[in-house]
């Protein structure tokens, strides 16, 4: 095992920290949603890198070589997560559009009529 095996995990940590930084410190709502998308990519990369097993093949039965296959659960999870991610991002962006129409701003400092 060399350090290269940890490369995906290092990337995951980098992506999550970048995304969290954007969500915490950027006031532009569109940028915040972009930050969430970055965290999401980190999560997907994490799951895919967990699923990798050296020397294993993809679990497709048709004319597969007689070696071990990886468990497809993390891949299914990643696909689900990507689909859900698209849905949530679209919903959030449409909320931002409506917010812009009502408040005339996409700054999170202005979107605070509900407070206290």
């Amino acid at each position: 095992m060399n350090w290269f095996n940890f490369f995906p995990l290092i990337m995951v940590v980098t992506l999550v920290i970048m995304g969290l930084y954007v969500v915490l410190f950027k006031k532009n709502l569109i940028k915040m949603i972009m930050g969430i998308a970055i965290i999401q990519n980190g999560a997907n990369l994490f799951l895919v890198s967990l699923a990798y097993r050296e020397g294993y093949v993809a679990p497709i039965w048709t004319s597969a070589p007689a070696t071990d296959m990886v468990l497809p659960t993390p891949h299914a999870l990643t696909l689900t997560s990507i689909v859900i991610g698209v849905a949530t991002t679209a919903l959030m962006l449409s909320f931002v559009i409506m917010l812009k129409k009502h408040y005339g701003s996409i700054n999170s400092d202005d979107a605070r009529r509900c407070r206290e």
Binding site: L20, V23, L24, S108, D109, R112, R113, R115
Partner: peptide, 14 residues
């Protein structure tokens, strides 16, 4: 403390 800014909501979560 209840500012109503969404960044603060995430901040408290973290």
């Amino acid at each position: 403390g209840h500012t109503g800014i969404v960044n603060d909501y995430v901040y408290w979560f973290v």
